[in-house]
Amino acid sequence: MTLGALLLPMMAMAAPLSGTLGSVGSDTLGGLMTQWGERLSARHPEVRLQVQASGSGTAPPALAEGVTRIGAMSRPMTEAERADFIARQGHPPVAVPVALDALTLFVHRDNPLTSLTLAQVEALFADTRFCDQAPAIRRWGALGLDGDWASRPVARFGRNTASGSHALFKREALCGGNFRRDVNELPGSSAVVAAVGRSREAIGYAGLGYPTAMVKILALRDDQGTPRLPTHDNVVSGRYPLTRPLYIYVNLAPGESLPPLERAFFDLVLSPEGQAVVARQGFVSLPESRLATARRALRLPPLADVTQSSSN
């Protein structure tokens, strides 16, 4: 905060930035983007960020069409999307990692289940068996629950196809297979969590930043069978299996440097202040090393001196 207060007059003197930045993309990143937008306006009172967040799938077409310069994505671009972008814009987009996230599996808080293996996840959510050959799980009993849970049917909730969570879950947890057709597709992560919280038999997946009082986060078992909760350490180290970076893609031609508005935005996002927002939103902030790499890639000044002054 002191850093912001120090920088504000300096920047205002250097270049009174003004204008509007538009962003299209991930709903998972939507909360982060709005917070960064608020903070950006605090740093540069004349700068505004407009956020459209309907899913990661919306970013590549918007970037390729030139409808936006900044696209938030909770998954990397696919080859096809990249190729389309290059075909339209003549150069590849730059992917800037801005936070770490984990795909989290939620159940109702009354559910006694505590952990799942990846094979069970596939058996719960997929129609295909591209990872493993486990038989389909229709009742909670098949996951080892007993009592009246044993005969209860499983209700499945997930994100809509436009979202990065959907695509990533499909690629990582289903090995590219197909979702069961009765997986409810809801147009928002918190809708998934809310639906799970209101249905005792439900299980759902969403990003990390959405837990509520009604749901419980499940641990996933890694290759050795150790249950791993998506905690800060497990996500940073990658021990939690469904970990992913969240990206912001920029339309930036090679050799060019960022326009001032985008520069100010990324300077904020890739700063301790911006990363504090990440933690506050329930995601995992980037480790220092990745932060530095990202700043270098965008030719932003290194953080070294800044981190010292703000570590008080």
């Binding site: 509007t20 538009g22 709903d27 939507g30 909360g31 407009q50 459209q52 967040a53 809801l186 147009p187 928002g188 992560s189 918190s190 809708a191 969590v193 809310a194 919280g197 930043g209 959405y210 509520t212 009082a213 009604m214 939103q281 329930g282």
Partner: peptide
């Protein structure tokens, strides 16, 4: 040319995509 907020969409967004569905 600017984007705008809309009550109906805000309602949809709050209900489906806010951070804490219960608190919102």
């Amino acid at each position: 040319d600017s984007k705008f907020m809309h009550l109906g969409y805000h309602l949809f967004d709050l209900g489906f995509a806010s951070r804490d569905a219960e608190a919102a």
